[in-house]
Nucleic acid binder design. Structure first.
Lengths: 145, 145
DNA sequence: CTACATGCAAATCATTTGCTTGGCA
DNA sequence: TGCCAAGCAAATGATTTGCATGTAG
């Protein structure tokens, strides 16, 4: 259990930090990557810890509202969740249309993009999300055959 | 019916251009904005033209595979579809977390972003999608009260 | 103690599929 | 006149909700 990290992330929340919620957060921290609700559910179930799938969803919603995690939908049906803190910095996702792989890439955007939108459109940006769909290295090779 | 535009968009496709498919494409052209499958279904139903919802979905899939339209999921559950041609240029979406409004903004990204990814990651980008979540002008005002 | 959280099962919503009938090439 | 497409109804899969019970503060 990443007790310290969990404490830090939940320092200012207005909900109870129960053992289920800690475990779910712990999985997100340990895996350190985008996960489906289903993934989290299965990982917990392989341990002693059985948490209901409904609880996983309710908890992820709660975490998202508090800004602890980010929720991402790629074009498929299900949502991915990932920790949102400075150490995990801003990154973007490449999604392979052929094999479905999701690859993370570092920040690519101009620094001033959020400010520009606030000035030009009066829109207050809280969260920014860049996704690119295409073909990963492997799938490009395989389609040559 | 935007016959000319429809002909142009379907010039090189390998499926039949039936009257239902024309009508669906026509709605997308006329409305000239992101629409839900449900929206298209309802618009057609108000006209003489009754097209089944399943047909709408099947057709949208087909159009997307052919590159005629783009499919976009914002964090909600349902997908939006919009015409994909040069005249509708690259644009991005601002999504208001409070009222749900979806606002289009013009291209903001550096020109070379796709090439950089191809060089640096070996990933071949076909489609790029930038979404920003936050609060629109109106909702900022209203929350001041 | 008591309000808030969990677990399970049932409900919901968008989307997909099976299958029969219709219609374009 | 053979295939692909449409329409409807039923199936699916992710997510949500109702409700009785458990538990953190």
């Amino acid at each position: 259990m990443h007790e310290k990290m969990i404490k830090k992330l939940t320092a200012n929340v207005d909900f109870r930090v129960t053992k289920q919620r800690k475990k779910i957060l712990d999985v997100l921290i340990s895996q350190d990557q985008h996960l489906l609700a289903q993934n989290i559910y299965e990982i917990l179930r392989e341990e002693d810890s059985k948490v209901g799938l409904a609880t996983v969803y309710r908890t992820l919603d709660l975490f998202e509202e508090s800004g602890i995690i980010k929720k991402r939908k790629f074009n498929g049906d299900s949502a991915y969740y990932e920790i949102n803190d400075e150490h995990h910095g801003n990154h973007h996702h490449l999604i392979c249309k052929s094999c479905g792989a999701v690859i993370e890439v570092d920040e690519l955007l101009p620094e001033d993009i959020e400010e520009r939108l606030e000035e030009e459109e009066g829109f207050q940006v809280e969260d920014l999300c860049l996704q690119m769909y295409g073909y990963c290295e492997n799938c490009q090779k395989n389609s040559d055959e």
